[in-house]
Design a protein around this nucleic acid. Sequence first.
DNA 1: CCAAAAGTGTTCAAAGTACACCCATGA
DNA 2: TCATGGGTGTACTTTGAACACTTTTGG
Lengths: 250, 250
Amino acid sequence: MSRTPSADALAVFHALPVTVDVVALTVRDGVLCVLLIRRLLPPFEGRLALPGGFMMRGEGLGDAARRELTEETGVDPVPGHLEQLASYGPGGRDPRGDVLTVAHLVMAPDFPVIAAGGDAAEAAWHPVSTVQGALAFDHDLILADGVERARAKLEYSPLAAAFCGSEFTIAQIRGVYEAVWGVRLDPRNFHRKATGAVGFLEETGQVSSGDAGRPAALYRLAPQSRQGDGPTTAAVLNPPIMRPASSPAS
Amino acid sequence: MSRTPSADALAVFHALPVTVDVVALTVRDGVLCVLLIRRLLPPFEGRLALPGGFMMRGEGLGDAARRELTEETGVDPVPGHLEQLASYGPGGRDPRGDVLTVAHLVMAPDFPVIAAGGDAAEAAWHPVSTVQGALAFDHDLILADGVERARAKLEYSPLAAAFCGSEFTIAQIRGVYEAVWGVRLDPRNFHRKATGAVGFLEETGQVSSGDAGRPAALYRLAPQSRQGDGPTTAAVLNPPIMRPASSPAS
DNA sequence: CCAAAAGTGTTCAAAGTACACCCATGA
DNA sequence: TCATGGGTGTACTTTGAACACTTTTGG
């Protein structure tokens, strides 16, 4: 297939419609939830789907993902907490024809969904376990990949704090790990690991109020100094907080 | 931005030229190398670049990556050893205009490059350390991301065997880890870890011939039974072979 | 005082590291 | 028999899991 670009025109090449989709995850009442919209228009009219839509001219991938998320759900992700997940397509995923989609992943605290707009109605958080298999397009696959990525990232990055507010207790952040991984962790050993990881938590001096039992110290995420030697290296948790080895296939 | 798709036509949306690029890595004489072509045509005429090119109609992402790699370098990757890396763009990476590229990663044994074709001349392996900063487009960034992904994957996947031929000694696969990570590993402890990991290596019964010293047993990669519970879960090395903790920032 | 949750100390088992040592070959 | 690299055994150190125990609150 010899292709001979006659000049500096790219128009001779096959061009594709490109969308961005967003897997926005949070933890509500100890349950891992994903932000979904209900589609107003065909295809898959009335079905649940990830927020997303077509890219606009002159936009970057991350910009488009942030714009679609805000347009359709009212959620405005904290900068730095949106990362690229993977690309899907272009064939076999939209009945209208070939569409390439670049999926993104956002971890957000459980703030209320402000609005639904654009092609979307009913933007809302749904427990991940209740929507698997029910989504439009290939969004079930994308959601599964996003959840797996989030699970893996908890181990070696300070990402879990993104699910909490700006100040949180050790028990709250432990609840994030338990919800995302679907396991129970020993509160006492977790406390040691979390407070022992360098560059993860920073004491505020405050204590939590209200609940039964002894008040817990409040922490915030420590200022993230990028480690490693590459420009693409993200902040790293050291030592990592590993998920328990799942028992061999039963 | 209300977009109202009038029917089942996608043509109303902004479409982008989409390319695939391939980071093909191997180990030659203990050095991590990447497969590069020299560009025959502008832009970046005469510069080194990753093999890649525009997608064709009806093609999947992986298909396109495999086709471009074969067209431009003669290398035909083993199925299952090509994975998606990330997407880049569309802005600011091609002087001709917006182009979205989906980068892929291939680990290959050090077989000879058969041919150069298409837009490429001089397809050849280059040590990664000598080409950083010299590549066309944003390929320096893509290469750095690919190398980092390969380094991380060695830890928890049987991927290192992809760099070797179908049969190899423990010392050879140890050389892969040492070259990719840029460290020295204790041969005796590595031997135990590698042979102790379940589902990684399988003895052939043969021994290597020729070199000085005691002949080494030959192994092959064990048949990969997919573990985990998801369709997207790849084979996992258990226990993982971790890279030594790099000394804290000096 | 009692219940409940936070936080600390201690013990034991598992895993990783360093390295002594033996094995099998070529020169 | 010596040099060279393959492979095993073993002691030491570090890490992680389990859990008893103390602290600090509300009822």
